[in-house]
Design a protein around this nucleic acid. Structure first.
Lengths: 124, 124
DNA sequence: TACACCTATTCAATATTCTGAATGTAAATC
DNA sequence: GATTTACATTCAGAATATTGAATAGGTGTA
């Protein structure tokens, strides 16, 4: 006899558009919160709330690196389910202009120059 | 871009233990409401409420035959999802003593005799 | 140490879901 | 036509989920 309560709890965690968007982002591999914030255009606290629900359902896990927190999908079967739902997974997440994390900064040299080199000439 | 709202709505319909039980019953083929009532041990009105939610989500469809209503799973992909969740599907639903529908009655001759033939000897 | 940055948590107001009870409806039977 | 049978719908109170606002916590940096 299957555990209908446990299954229902899993589906409950999945039954939310923003949580599905987050999982969709995580299909390409681990992602930090600030990246999700930039990609989804939602406030950070809101995303953290949804991440907590996904974490408590056992769908994702997290890892701290400096002051960032990276999340990833825990189980292979979740990835397969998302493939069924959304089609084949993207190999890589795009770098986002609005995302301040090191990965995105490295891929966005224009943004890097403004913060790490000299001011624009107009200011002189 | 996937339709996250539509997917979330689907999961919402699945996110309930009794609704999952109903779908699990329907894996073996179409089933009438009184059969579900006997199999799940729930009141009829309650089951009808859950059936309505599954119907509105497009997961099941129904057919009237006399005063009974038979339900079945609409899409093949739903059956595959249930297989993933619960393992391979049973080929047939068992006949239930408590179910008055013709199919179960035919498979339960003892029950049949009581209602269609003479009273037990003890009553004479 | 003080500060800025990135993330997590708590709180409260609102919205939605759940579930029992009562009632409605349509088909078959008497 | 009245009754029974099988199922559907409506209603209301309780429980739960949603989401914005405020704030707390930990980590790197000046």
């Amino acid at each position: 006899m299957p555990d209908f309560d446990a299954c229902a709890a899993l589906f409950k965690a999945l039954a939310h558009p923003v949580r599905l968007q987050i999982l969709s982002l995580l299909r390409a591999g681990e992602v930090c919160v600030c990246h999700m914030e930039a990609a989804l255009g939602r406030r950070q606290a809101y995303i953290s709330q949804q991440l907590m629900i996904l974490r408590e359902a056992g769908l994702i896990d997290s890892r701290k690196e400096g002051r960032q927190v990276f999340y990833w999908i825990t189980e292979e079967r979740t990835l397969r389910l998302l493939d069924d739902l959304f089609g084949p997974a993207p190999v890589e997440n795009p770098a986002l202009e609005a995302c301040p994390c090191p990965r995105c900064a490295a891929a966005n040299p224009s943004t890097l120059r403004l913060s790490e080199e000299e001011e624009p000439y107009a200011h002189h």
